[in-house]
C-alpha cells in the first residue's frame, strides 16, 4: 500500500490504456510516455500492463506503508527517498514509512513512478488507466489527491538488487533546441496548399499552454487549405495532427476523442509521440517526414531493444538478488 502526499489535478494512475474499447467511444488513454512506463515495469519485473503513476505536477510525494520495490522513470529531475538523492531511471526498495519526493524536472515533463506488483485498482474495460473525461478507471476515475491510499499487487519477482539498479541507456528525451517528431502524411495532406505543406515541415512550431492529455495546441505559420473541407466525423488515433480552420495545428494525445472532424495533415508516428508528451510548454517542435516502412522499422527496433533489455534485467536480478 502507498499513500499519496500531494494534491494535483494532473497526476493519475495509468497503464497501457484501452486500445480495444475505441468502438465504444472510449479513448485509448494510458501513459503519455509509454516507453518510460514500460521501462519502470521492466526494472521491477512487473507485467508490461502493470499500472503506475503518471506525474505531470510537481512536487509529488508519496509514502510507502510497507516495504516495496519501486522505480522512477521518464522526465529527469530531482528524486529523493527520505531526502536521499536517487540516480535517474532507478529502481530500489523503499522501507515502510519512507517518503518519495519528485521535484520539478529539468528535462522532460512527465515522470512515472512504478511499484513492484503494480497499482492494484480494479480493471475497467480491460485497463486500470484513469479516464478523466469518462470519470472511470484509476482511483474512482479521478486524479490523485493527498491521502489517497493505493493498494499494490503481489510482485511477480523477488524485487530488485539490495542497493537498487537502473537503466544504463536512458529513454531518449527531446533534443534541447527542438523536439523532432517523425510524421506520416494523413488523409487531407494533399488538400493543403504547397506553401502550407512546406511550412509544416520547414518551420518551427511552438507548444502553447493549451497542452494536456487530450491534445496539444501548437502555434506557428497558419496552414491554409486549397479549399474549405467539410468532413464527416471519422475515427482518429493519438498522434493525429488536425488543422482547424484557423490554421494552427492540434495534436491529438492519449486521451483524444476517438472521432473528430477537422482535416488531418499528418500523424506523428507511435515511436515519437512520447517525445512530444515530454515537451514543455513554449518548447519548439519540428515535424520530420518519414515513410511507413521506416516508421514500422522504428517501432519494431524499439520492441526488439525492449525485449533485449527485459532479458538483461531478468538476468541481473537472478545474479544479484540473494535467494
Amino acid at each position: 500500500m502507498i499513500e499519496i502526499r500531494a494534491n494535483s489535478a494532473l497526476n493519475t494512475i495509468q497503464d497501457r490504456g484501452r486500445p480495444r474499447a475505441m468502438t465504444l467511444g472510449v479513448a485509448r488513454g494510458g501513459a503519455m510516455d509509454m516507453l518510460a512506463l514500460a521501462c519502470g515495469n521492466m526494472l521491477l519485473g512487473n507485467e508490461p500492463d502493470a499500472a503506475g503513476i503518471e506525474i505531470a505536477f510537481f512536487p509529488f510525494r508519496l509514502r510507502f506503508l510497507d516495504d516495496r520495490a519501486f522505480a522512477v522513470t521518464g522526465a529527469r529531475g530531482p528524486v529523493r527517498l527520505d531526502g536521499v538523492d536517487l540516480p535517474p531511471d532507478w529502481a530500489v526498495i523503499a522501507r515502510a514509512g519512507q517518503t518519495l519526493q519528485c521535484d520539478a524536472p529539468t528535462e522532460g515533463c512527465r515522470t512515472y513512478v512504478t511499484i513492484a506488483g503494480g497499482i492494484d485498482v480494479p480493471l475497467v474495460l480491460g485497463a486500470r488507466a484513469t479516464d478523466l473525461k469518462g470519470g472511470f478507471g484509476g482511483l474512482e476515475g479521478r486524479a490523485l489527491q493527498k491521502g489517497d491510499r493505493l493498494p499494490c499487487g503481489v510482485p511477480a519477482t523477488p524485487g530488485v538488487p539490495p542497493h537498487g539498479y537502473g537503466l544504463a541507456v536512458r529513454c531518449p528525451m527531446p533534443d534541447a533546441d527542438a523536439t523532432r517528431v517523425r510524421v506520416l502524411p494523413a488523409a487531407e495532406y494533399d488538400d493543403f496548399t504547397a506553401e502550407a505543406r512546406h511550412a509544416f515541415f520547414q518551420t518551427a512550431w511552438r507548444l502553447t499552454p493549451s497542452a494536456n492529455r487530450t491534445g496539444y495546441r501548437l502555434e506557428g505559420t497558419p496552414l491554409a487549405q486549397q479549399r474549405p473541407l467539410n468532413l464527416f466525423s471519422h475515427g482518429i488515433v493519438p498522434g493525429t495532427v488536425q488543422v482547424p480552420p484557423a490554421g494552427q495545428p492540434i495534436v491529438q494525445m492519449a486521451d483524444a476523442n476517438t472521432c473528430g472532424g477537422y482535416p488531418k495533415i499528418a500523424t506523428i508516428i507511435e515511436s515519437d509521440l512520447r517525445l512530444l508528451a515530454q515537451t514543455r510548454v513554449q518548447g519548439s517542435i519540428r515535424f520530420v517526414e518519414t515513410t511507413r516502412a521506416d516508421a514500422i522499422a522504428a517501432l519494431r527496433a524499439e520492441a526488439r531493444d525492449q525485449a533485449r533489455r527485459a532479458d538483461a534485467f531478468a538476468h541481473l536480478r537472478r545474479m544479484l538478488i540473494p535467494a
Partner: peptide
C-alpha cells in the same frame, strides 16, 4: 479495432 465513422471506417492493427 474496426471503428465506423460517418461514411468512413478506421481500422487499427498491431504494426509490430
Amino acid at each position: 479495432q474496426a471503428v465506423p465513422g460517418v461514411n468512413n471506417l478506421l481500422v487499427t492493427f498491431d504494426a509490430l
